[in-house]
């Protein structure tokens, strides 16, 4: 339901506006001065604001400028100024302050309704745009198969957490893990089952992390886990939990149950100011390499 604010110090005008706009299906909030209007605007998610030009406390035009100056506001508010002024200069002043439209009082109801419909069209378009933008962003940061963060996003998160760890002088760790003999799974069972294995591995891994740990798909069958504020012993615990969650339960497929295991390489630094991000990742990768060479289905943690 579109939320509409009526701000007018004239009770008669306010009542008329409230009555008509409610009957047209808006959820209406009323304010009798600019200050009340500002309070409502800050608390309610108002879509359309009808602001009287001259109001006590804060004028409609001032409020209009304040709304437009608010940089954090990503949801557009459609503003219609109500005015008894109708000379061209005043209209220009109003539009320059950020109003989308104006209507001169006393107004013709049919004209007023038509102008509100224009506002609704803009608001609806903006909602659709924001929705698509949100969906595009979701697509841009997630891996389409597993639903985990993609390589770019997990790398961005790693950078963010690493900077935070440096600032707060807290430990940070990474785990790179890889599905053992994944090529064989694809070769023996087909790519569809290979994909299903990737999806289930991703779900099991994600379900076994702490809420503040982050995981992303780093490569084909490779995953990266970020462990903020995590010591070496905890990192090993997390890695072993992940390993067990994969190897302890067989994967069911149309070709029967499949044994899957993962190898993990972890690296933890207690002093993030003394190491680079890339170095931490390189050490994780080396530890993974060691785990693979030592027989797979195991965890290796780098000595730092």
């Amino acid at each position: 339901m579109i939320k509409l604010l009526v701000a007018d110090d004239d009770p008669v005008s306010r009542k008329i506006l409230e009555k008509h706009t409610s009957s047209w299906g808006f959820k209406v909030y009323a304010a009798k001065n600019g200050k009340e209007a500002r309070d409502i605007l800050s608390k309610k998610d108002i879509h359309i604001a009808l602001l009287d030009w001259m109001m006590p406390e804060i004028s409609g035009i001032e409020l209009c400028s304040q709304i437009r100056k608010k940089k954090s506001e990503n949801k557009y508010k459609y503003i219609i100024l109500l005015t008894s002024k109708d000379n061209q200069e005043d209209i220009i002043t109003g539009l320059e302050a950020g109003a989308d439209d104006y209507i001169t009082k006393p107004f013709n109801i049919k004209e007023f309704e038509a102008r509100l419909k224009t506002g609704m069209r803009i608001i609806t378009l903006q909602h659709q745009l924001l929705k698509s933008q949100k969906e595009l962003h979701r697509i841009a940061i997630h891996d389409s198969l597993t639903g985990l963060f993609n390589r770019r996003e997990i790398t961005r998160i790693f950078k963010e957490r690493f900077i935070q760890a440096r600032r707060e002088k807290r430990p940070i760790g990474t785990i790179i893990l890889d599905i053992d003999h994944f090529k064989k799974i694809n070769d023996n069972h087909g790519h569809q089952i290979g994909d299903a294995v990737l999806v289930e591995v991703a779900q099991r891994l994600q379900g076994n992390l702490r809420p503040y740990d982050k995981i992303g798909r780093y490569g084909g069958e490779e995953f990266l886990v970020i462990l903020p504020n995590c010591g070496k012993a905890s990192a090993r615990k997390v890695a072993e939990r992940l390993r067990r969650t994969i190897c302890q339960t067989k994967f069911k497929s149309n070709n029967g149950a499949i044994n899957i295991s993962i190898s993990l390489g972890g690296a933890v630094t207690e002093r993030p100011n003394h190491i680079s991000m890339n170095e931490l990742l390189r050490l994780s990768d080396m530890a993974l390499y060691g785990a693979k060479n030592n027989g797979r289905n195991r965890t290796g943690i780098a000595d730092i």
Binding site: D9, D10, V12, M54, S84, K105
Partner: peptide
């Protein structure tokens, strides 16, 4: 000015 303006508006509406 403000009070005159408000009264003018409500009188005009009616």
């Amino acid at each position: 000015l403000m009070l005159g303006h408000t009264l003018k508006g409500s009188s005009s509406n009616l």
